[in-house]
Nucleic acid binder design. Structure first.
Length: 320
DNA sequence: AATATCATCAACCGCGAACAC
DNA sequence: GGTGTTCGCGGTTGATGATAT
């Protein structure tokens, strides 16, 4: 933010329109390697003829790992409707309550279907449909993660734990699969298969404090039996302790570090040694973070934003 | 089979807020 | 405090596929 504009540099002709797989690959590779940092420099450094804005949008709405994509479950729709009732067109805020969904996706779904549904409901006293037209079969046959969470009432949407992210979604990797027209739609179907595995690449923005506010650590750990999650402990030295919740599948530990309020104690860097309960430590890494004790949520847990690349295990990396 | 209409969704545009200088 | 730049958000558009006639 605020750095000198490179986007304004003389007459770079920026490409518009749909993204090709090659462009996607370039952008993804670059961000995975370097993080996005200043968006205006991303296309330059990544060798893309796009503007930073376009790159940001593409990343957020399409390439970002952890996106759920696919069809909305009836529960998600209820959540959107309830939140829209409270917040109006605050799509960004609404999307924070639906991990894996983007504001654009929610907005589109609202305009294409939910708005009409709500109007219809308001116009008639008949009970609302629970699922949309031709989508109903697919909703029922796919075991949506949100089915595991019941909403107490439409006015009190259930917040879905951030732990429920699907595996990284990737568009076709080869050029011969590229069809500018059907790429997107086909991609939708391809990536929507059931995958309980956590993404290997994690970004802090997936984990809003909001989500944690409604889901204490215990329920997250409680997912371990069915979702491949396991709790672990994090040892941050004599003064700091934390709970580490993650996926212990295949011996890899993908973690979401949660720290009790105040445990960071003003420290801004430390060496983390994380174990999964077995005799040997899973990984050890030096990292730094901001003291966020003031931002701790009602359950006294907070997500610590790592300020540096966080090597979890070999290829598994967390970025901020 | 051909055409028209509708539904969907990726992407663009413009604006305001935040930030740096 | 003023100005310029970047970011993020919400509204809108345009392309495409699906469905109806």
């Amino acid at each position: 933010m605020g750095s000198k504009s490179q986007e304004q540099k003389p007459k770079l002709k920026h490409k518009k329109g749909l993204w090709s797989p090659e462009e996607d690959q370039r952008l993804r590779s670059y961000i995975v390697k370097h993080g996005h940092g200043c968006w205006s420099t991303v296309p330059i450094n990544a060798g893309l003829q796009r503007n930073g804005k376009s790159c940001r949008l593409r990343w957020i709405n399409y390439l970002r790992p952890g996106l759920k994509r696919g069809l909305f479950s009836s529960h998600e729709e209820d959540t959107i409707i309830a939140l829209h009732r409270q917040l109006g067109n605050k799509w960004s805020q609404i999307s924070q309550h639906l991990p894996g969904r983007t504001d654009n996706e929610i907005k589109n779904h609202w305009h294409s279907y939910l708005k009409k549904k709500v109007l219809k409901e308001n116009a008639s006293s008949t009970p609302p449909e629970t699922t949309p037209h031709r989508k109903i079969q697919q909703y029922c046959s796919s075991s949506s993660i949100t089915d595991h969470y019941s909403s107490p009432s439409p006015d009190k949407p259930t917040l879905i734990p951030a732990s429920h992210f699907r595996q990284n979604s990737l568009p076709p990797s080869t050029a011969d699969q590229w069809d500018p027209q059907s790429y997107s739609n086909r991609h939708h179907q391809e990536i929507n298969g059931p995958s309980p595995a956590l993404p290997k690449l994690m970004f802090a923005e997936w984990l809003s404090l909001d989500s944690f506010a409604a889901t204490s650590a215990a329920p997250l750990v409680g997912c371990s039996n069915t979702k491949g999650f396991a709790g672990g402990s994090a040892d941050f030295g004599p003064d700091v302790s934390g709970l580490f919740v993650g996926d212990n599948n295949n011996g890899l530990f993908h973690g979401y570090p949660l720290f009790q309020q105040g445990t960071s104690g003003g420290q801004n860097s430390m060496t983390a040694t994380v174990s999964d309960g077995s005799a040997s430590d899973v990984f050890s890494s030096q990292f730094s973070f901001d003291d966020q004790s003031s931002a701790a949520d009602a359950n006294n847990y907070q997500f610590v934003e790592f300020c540096s690349e966080f090597q979890l295990n070999g290829n598994d990396v967390m970025y901020i």
